[in-house]
Structure formats: C-alpha cells, structure tokens
Amino acid sequence: MIKIAPSILSADFSKLGEEIKCLDKCGADLIHIDVMDGSFVPNISFGVPIIKSIRRFTKLTFDVHLMIQEPARYAENFVEAGADIITVHFEADKHLDRTVNYIKSLGVKVAVALNPATLVDNIKYLIPYLDMVLIMSVNPGFGGQKYIEYCSEKIKEVKNLSDKYNKDLMIEVDGGISKYNIGSVVENGANVIVAGSAVFKDGNVKDNIKKLREGV
C-alpha cells in the first residue's frame, strides 16, 4: 500500500495545529517534517519546540527529516519531542553506521536520505539495517521545485537493493511529485510519497490527497 506523507513545509504556519488536524482527517498516512539548519541546506525551518508543540494534534507517524549537520547530536531531542522516524542525510554525517545504530537504540525507526547527485551504492551495506531510504528528487532546502528525472533510476536501484537485502524497506521519494507523475514514481519502486505543494495548494487538502492516490 502506498503511503502519502504531506510535508508541512507547505502548510500555513500561522495555523499549524489546525493544518495537522486536517491532514489527520483527510487521509494522510504520515506527517513529513523538514528540519533545516541554514547550514546543510540554505534555509531554516522547524526545531524541537515546534515538533513538541504539534505532537498533541495527531497520532499519525511523525516522519522527521533532519537536513542538518551532525544529526546524531540532536536525534534524542527530536525523539523526545515526538519523532517516530528519524531521517539523516548521508552527506551530513561522517560516521553514518554509528548514527544509524544510535538512532535505532532510541527506539524509533531510522532512515537515510540521499541528495539527487549522491550514488545509491554509498549506502548499499546499510540497507539491511534501515527502515527507510529517502530519495531526494529535488535539491533540498525549498518546496515547490521540479522533479529531477534521473532520480527515477535511483528509485529503481534502491528497489533492487531492497529486494535483495531488506524486503520490508520503505522507499520514500521527496520533491516535485504531483498527480501527474506519482504513477511512474510508484511504478519505479517508491512506496512512501512526500508531497507539499501538491497537498496544500488551493486549501483542498482532502481532494488533493485523493487525487494523488488516484494517480497511482
């Protein structure tokens, strides 16, 4: 079953609690939360206090994507704030194996994200130990970007590794996904779809999530 993970980076920050409750009622499977530090990516977004404050509005899985330097330093804080999945970037961590095992020891699921130009082979040996791989299909830092076409091949590569080493692996794709291309993204092997603009545009969240599912 395909899971839809709306990115609240595209939500109305002035009424974030209401937006979260809306996602819960409108058919979202996870809540994707992009944490940016202004260093690893050229933008700043949510921190621990925000995540802690919105946790009470839903029981949906909090899929927390750490686009930050030295993510292991902050992982426990995000878990305590309510994260259910912690995603760290291959490019941001010098000791990724250690960080993966540390996050698992905190009792949550762990994922590794790959920027568009990063080779899938870089995480080949970690695949059996991961709960999810996040393939960035745009350069991270901002919403509303266009899907980078060569990332379709990366999705297929991760799916092949999943079939060999970890059949339970979730394959998440984030960036530029709409009702027009979600079908091919899923066909290539993705089973968790992050969508920001495609979910929140025009304020028709329920209909937009429905259209995404219909596009599969």
Rank of each mutant, 00 (worst) to 15 (best):
Leu119Tyr: 12
Lys104Gly: 06
Tyr74Gly: 00
Asp93Leu: 10
Ile54Ser: 02
Ala113Asp: 06
Lys94Glu: 13
Gln69Asn: 15
Thr87Pro: 05
Asn77Ile: 01
Arg98Ala: 09
Pro49Arg: 01
Ala81Thr: 07
Ala117Gly: 09
His89Arg: 09
Tyr74Phe: 14
Gly47Asn: 01
Tyr74Leu: 13
Arg98Gly: 00
Phe62Pro: 04
Asp63Glu: 11
Phe40Ile: 10
Leu66Ser: 01
Val64Gln: 01
Asp84Tyr: 05
His89Val: 09
Asn101Phe: 15
Thr99Glu: 13
Asp93Gly: 02
Asp84Leu: 12
Asn115Arg: 14
Thr58Ala: 04
Asn43Val: 04
Pro116Asp: 06
Ile50Lys: 00
Asn77Met: 13
Thr58Ser: 15
His89Gly: 05
Asp63Ile: 11
Asn101Thr: 06
Glu76Cys: 06
Val108Trp: 05
Ala83Val: 10
Leu114Trp: 06
Arg56Pro: 01
Tyr102Ser: 09
Leu96Tyr: 04
Lys109Met: 15
Arg73His: 07
Leu114Ile: 11
Val64Thr: 14
Ala117Gln: 15
Lys59Gln: 10
Tyr102Met: 14
Val120Glu: 04
His95Gln: 14
Val48Asn: 02
Leu66Pro: 00
Ser39Asn: 15
Pro71Ile: 09
Ala72Cys: 11
Ile54Lys: 02
Phe78Ala: 09
Glu91Cys: 05
Ala72Met: 12
Ile86Cys: 08
Pro42Tyr: 02
Glu76Asn: 13
Thr99Cys: 13
Val100Phe: 02
Thr87Leu: 11
Asn115His: 10
Ala83Asn: 05
Gly47Leu: 07
Asp97Ile: 15
Pro71Leu: 05
Ile68Leu: 11
Leu114Pro: 08
Met67Pro: 03
Phe62His: 01
Ile85Cys: 03
Lys94Arg: 15
Phe90Trp: 13
Lys52Tyr: 05
Ile54Asn: 05
Asp63Arg: 07
Asn115Met: 10
Asp121His: 14
Phe46Lys: 00
Asp84Cys: 12
Asp121Phe: 15
Ser53Trp: 03
Asn77Tyr: 14
Gly82Trp: 03
Asn43Trp: 01
Leu114Tyr: 02
Pro71Val: 07
Leu66Val: 03
Pro49Ser: 07
Val41Asn: 04
Lys104Ile: 06
Gly82Ser: 11
Ser45Asp: 02
Ile68Tyr: 03
Val79Phe: 03
Pro42Glu: 10
Lys52Leu: 01
Val110Gln: 06
Phe40Thr: 03
Lys52Pro: 00
Val110Pro: 00
Val120Cys: 10
Glu80Val: 14
Gln69Leu: 14
Ile68Gly: 00
Asp84Val: 14
Asp84Lys: 12
Met67Cys: 02
Asp121Ile: 12
Val64His: 02
Lys104Met: 10
Glu80Asp: 12
Asn101Val: 03
Ser105Arg: 13
Ala72Asp: 14
Lys104Asn: 12
Lys52Asn: 11
Asp63Val: 06
Val41Met: 04
Ser53Asp: 09
Thr118Ile: 10
Ile68Trp: 03
Ala113Val: 08
Val48Tyr: 05
Ile103Tyr: 00
Leu66Glu: 03
Phe78Met: 07
Ala81Gln: 10
Val100Gln: 10
Thr58His: 04
Val110Asn: 09
Ile85Gly: 02
Ile68Met: 09
Phe62Leu: 13
